[in-house]
Amino acid sequence: MLLLMSPWLAGFSIFFGYPLVMTGYLSFTHYDLLSPAKWIGWANYSYLLHGDPQVWPAVVNSLEWIGIVVPLQVLFAFGVALMLARARLGLGFFRTVFYLPALAPPVAATLGFVYLLNPATGPINTVLDHLGIQGPLWFQSPGWAKPSLALLSLWGVGNTMIIFLAAILDVPRHLYESAELDGAGPLRRLRWVTLPTVSPVVLFAAVFGVIQGLQYFTQAYVAANIAAGQASQAGDTINNLGYPQDATLFYPVLLYQHGFVNFNMGYASALAMLLLAVAFAVVLVILLNSRRWVHYAGAVR
């Protein structure tokens, strides 16, 4: 047993347990990797709570993402899966089409969207122009930057959609038939047959959407850099994080900025501790209800 478990035991202690403890320790220090870490007590936390003007926008951005975009993703994936499940022709074709975007690497997909949604020359606004609509400023405006990212994430919802589709198709046929015999219309069948059977899967997807939402980084980072546009001479990306106007400054982006741009390791650790507290609360909620969901875990990636 020990032999079988040993890789994980080693891996877990080196790459998870130890750093977790160290994060706690470093959060009470000032540490720039060059001179030794220096104990400064609660100073990092007090700067986090009172001094740093970027913390609050970052927290709000992340919460908005989790509160609005994650549910949207689930609803959208479910809607598409429902349509697919009812398809009589070309199920395989449609399934492939809806799944493909999920395969596009996040960086590539983000680059594509920033170009497509360029307010002046992007194809989307060009098409809208032909329809007589003045397109929005998309990634260039603080109001539209998050909706643009949301579109990107809805486009790549394929994995969740496939899982939902399988769950819906797994609903025993006879349940529908007896419901139909009882005179239930399509909507009521959806409400009373489909939903109860697939709800654990949906719930699970939502929960893991939240976990992913807490880590949302790549798309925000790339979109901000590319949309800030106008490649600078040495590709200096430091000041573009969160572009425009902190609209894409999600919490992990802020942590990256302090830890790996400014190399304020102590302060970044304090930020990580706050994230840990929130994430751990979410995890606890999940684990306490794990009996209901554990079979469905796995869509983490």
Binding site: L26, F260, S269, L275, A279, F280
Partner: peptide, 24 residues
């Protein structure tokens, strides 16, 4: 317990441990 710990490790964001790992 070990399984529980695997689940926790699975669900916590990587950003939580990234600073000390980089230092290490």
């Amino acid at each position: 317990l070990a399984f529980m710990v695997v689940l926790i490790a699975l669900m916590l964001p990587p950003q939580v441990t990234v600073v000390p790992l980089y230092v290490m």
